[in-house]
Every structure is written in structure tokens, then in C-alpha cells.
Design a protein around this nucleic acid. Structure first.
Lengths: 257, 257
DNA sequence: CGACCGATTGACACAGCTCAAATGAAGTGG
DNA sequence: CCACTTCATTTGAGCTGTGTCAATCGGTCG
């Protein structure tokens, strides 16, 4: 559970498109945060709640999910350190999905009023956070495509590629390895498949020598093969660097290892 | 193709959560718009483009879509009059999906710079548009759930309920009837099913006396039945009124007709 | 009239689901 | 240090929702 100053990952995130000014970084560092540990599967916000806080992920992973009829659950997003989980609390009056921790996690709560106050003083910070909202929407569009038009092995491959790319930007996926407490049942709920089938897909990815995945440790053995299988192209993530530069480079390293 | 003043639907949209001040409405009405007719299936923006304008839907319907491998297409959102189709042009540098017109439509293009200029002067307008972005994200979460965890008849029913609700707020769905130039193949691409199966689902909805759907005219014959079949609940749309008030009321009217 | 497009139908195939049980790993308490 | 529980993973077998392929039908337009 990496710490550093709590807002450091957020800062580097907001500066992806260009540096902030000193007083802007200052304002962020002055935000009143309530840092909290949440344990695995602990619900943070429930659908139907009136939002009273915004949640910044400092360490670990959160996820949002909705229930469909028949007790079927869909994970609608995965949140990694540096992500704001529920910025919509700033402007919406009711919460449309559940927010929980995947494994043990560290979050920082911010009062919407305090955040709004900061954003009113700093239009550029407001723009930077709005931009994060647009990126979130782009990720949703890709998930819609993934769920609607790809078969199961591609869905899982695509999700792994996305996670690796996003985690690289916060330096949590070196050599195309990363650690995530995602069970096969949760993988299934994110990919819209059954947990039995998720297991078979993971085995197939192992057999194809694309991915190793044991006890929360994911290792991509063949990035380009996995990206091909998952029909993955990182443009939608709006990353500051080209994956063509970053990922295959890492791949070479990991293949020597 | 309804007109009125081009920004009138946008205004009523932004005022859903509270009235704007006179000078704010003024600023919107002074936005330099380029009103344009687009013909059916005409691409407006393509994936990979550098965004150069924001597109406001004045009349008709637009949709965004992405291609998956094997030529499979997924419609990622449907846009109705009053919607901004690509606000992300304000802050993102590349376009992640295609934008086209479903049938003939009327749009207004706004230069991002002009929009940004207006938003910098009016923080409340910026907040109002940011709120629309959050609602868009909530809709995406529901689509993810729809595609991931509902079977085909529920997916289609859910989509119809969503469209009816959204169109009601812009007064384009009285008595639970609305007109939309959506072919069964496009319905299929929105719901992640094959067009053959979309046809069978539509027939089943007719047989169950839930929906009539002939040549672009959709008539919901049994709102509560359709909402039940589609596992639909409108909270995620963040509408200013309760559907429980509006929709069943309309239903009574339409059932007498 | 021919061309085209969207809706419709039938037959068959298969990806992925459900049910059910077994295996393995990790922790708990006696 | 061993029973016992718990939870995640794995496997097998049969079922089904949905896809694919290939026609046909019906309306519309030039």
C-alpha cells in the first residue's frame, strides 16, 4: 500500500497534459483529506446514497458495480491509485452504483464543498479534473465495445491490457507485471461472463503463453500477442506517451528475464 | 426536425437542476453556432481525428460507435436533441470513437475555444456542462451492465425505456410514443446482438404486447411490463422528475387512446 | 421494371451457461 | 500440530441463448 504524500499520484495525473503552476499544486496539497484504510470488499458507497464525499484512491484498487435482476452483478469500472472514484458527487444528487474495495485499500475522502471551493479558485484545476471525467467516459465506451462485441477471451485479454497500461502510468506495472487482488469471479463480473468460463479463459491464456496469473500476481508474457487477442489499442486511454514506445520496450526486458 | 431557437433545448437541459441567471442564458445565446444539416449515416467525426469542434444535437439523432476486430460494430451511445455529442473535444486531443447521424439530423457546431471562453467566464455554466458529462458516464455504466449482465430481450427493453425517458425530458415522447430512425441492424449494434436476433426480440416484444415498432415509430404499450422485462429503473438518468410520476401517468393516457 | 434496402424466416452450429462436485490453499481454534 | 472451515480454483457434462448462413419477402425509389 504505497503512500508518499497522499496527493502525489493525483498531481502527476493532473499534470499529464502540462505542468500546473506552483499555487495550483499548493492548493491541492492544502485540500483537507481524510485518509482511511478500507478492508477487502468493504462497501464505500452504495447505490441510492446521497453523495457526501469524493473518494481518491491512494493505494490498492476500488471498483464500481451494479446489480442486474436475478442477482447478476456487473463490475462497471476498476479504479487504480490516482483515480478519483466518484467525482460525480460534486454535481449529482444521487449515486447510481456501488463502490467497494477489491482488496485492502487506502483512500482519501474529500468533502465536495472543499473540492468545489478549490476548483472555483482554479479554473485550470477544474479543467484538469473535467478532463479526467472525459477519459473515464472514453474508458466506458471501450468497455461497452468490449462487452458488446468481443468474445470472452478477447474481453479478458483486453481488460488485462487496459489494466497494465493504466498501472504503468502510475508506475505500478514494471516489466508488464502487476499485482491485483482480482478473483476469477470478479474478473467474470467485469467481463460479463460466468466465473466458470472465466477460469477456462484464464487457463487458455496460460496455455497460449500470453499471461501468467497466480495469486494476485499478473505477468504478461507476450504483450503484442495479448493485445492482438484482446483487440487492444491504447489510444482511448489518452496516455501521455505512446504504448508502442513503452509497452514493447518493457516486453523486451521481460522476455530476457 | 424541430428547430425553435437552436439553443433552447440546451438551455432547458442545463436548467434541470436550477435556473440560470439572465446573463448566463445570454452568454449561451451569443455562442457562435454553425447550424448544419447532416444526412442519414453521414459521418461527423471519425476515430483518430483531432477534434476541432463540439457538436450539439438540435434535431434528429446521432450515435457514437467503435469497431471491434472482425468488422463487428458497437454503438456506444445514442444522442438525442439537446445532447452535446463530443464535449470531450474541449479537453482531449484525440477522438476515440466515430460520430454519425442515425437519420437526417440538424446539428450545431461550436468552436471549442468559444465554448471554453464562455465557460471561463461562467463557472456555473461550466459546472452545468460538467454535470452533463457525469450523467453521460452514469448512462455508460448502465450500458455496461446492460451488455454484460442482461439477456437480449432485457437489453432491448432497457434501451427502449431509456430512450423513452430521455426523449420525454425534451418533449419528444408524448404518450410513450416516439419516432427514431433506428433500423434493426442498428438496434443490434447498440445491444451487442446479431441483427437476426434483434428481429426475433422485436417480434417477441410485439407478441408480449409490450411494444409496437413499425417504420421508425415506437409505441410502448405497457410501460411497467417493459420496464420489468428490461430491468429498468430511471434513477441513473438523474432526471429532474420521478418517472414513477411521469411515465405511468402517460401510460394511463396511452392505454385509453 | 429493376435495384436496393430492411425485415423476416428456417436450419443448424457453437460459445458460453448452469449445475454439481472435487481439489487446493490458507487460516482458525483446540 | 492437527481437525475443520472457508474461499478460490478447477473439472466434467449437458443445456440453451444467440450466432451464422442463406433465402425470401415487401416496400421504395429512380
Amino acid at each position: 500500500m504505497e503512500s508518499g504524500r497522499p496527493y502525489s499520484r493525483l498531481l502527476s495525473r493532473l499534470e499529464r497534459y502540462g505542468p500546473l503552476e506552483h499555487h495550483e499544486r499548493q492548493r491541492i496539497s492544502e485540500l483537507p483529506l481524510t485518509v482511511t484504510n478500507v478492508s477487502a470488499h468493504q462497501p464505500i458507497t452504495l447505490q441510492g446514497d446521497k453523495p457526501s464525499r469524493c473518494t481518491l484512491v491512494l493505494g490498492g484498487f476500488l471498483y464500481t458495480h451494479k446489480m442486474a435482476s436475478g442477482g447478476r452483478r456487473q463490475i462497471t469500472s476498476l479504479l487504480v491509485p490516482g483515480d478519483f472514484a466518484d467525482l460525480q458527487a460534486l454535481h449529482l444528487h444521487n449515486v447510481d452504483c456501488n463502490l467497494s474495495a477489491l482488496g485492502p485499500a487506502v483512500v482519501a475522502f474529500v468533502a465536495p464543498a472543499a473540492l468545489n471551493d478549490m476548483l472555483n479558485r482554479s479554473p485550470r484545476l477544474a479543467q484538469a479534473l473535467w478532463r479526467e471525467t472525459f477519459i473515464e467516459a472514453a474508458i466506458y465506451r471501450e468497455w461497452v465495445t468490449n462487452l458488446g462485441r468481443r468474445e470472452s477471451i478477447a474481453r479478458v485479454s483486453h481488460l488485462i491490457c487496459e489494466l497494465a497500461s493504466r498501472l504503468q502510468t502510475v508506475d505500478l506495472a514494471r516489466n508488464l507485471c502487476f499485482s491485483i487482488p482480482l478473483t476469477q469471479a470478479e474478473l467474470a463480473d467485469a467481463c460479463g461472463i460466468s466465473s466458470v468460463h472465466a477460469n477456462r479463459v484464464v487457463q487458455e491464456l496460460r496455455r497460449l503463453e500470453l499471461v501468467e496469473w497466480d495469486s494476485r500476481q499478473v505477468r504478461i508474457r507476450n504483450w503484442s500477442g495479448l493485445a492482438r487477442t484482446g483487440d487492444f489499442s491504447a489510444e482511448y486511454l489518452q496516455l501521455p506517451f505512446c504504448v508502442e514506445e513503452a509497452a514493447p520496450l518493457e516486453e523486451r526486458v521481460s522476455e530476457e528475464a
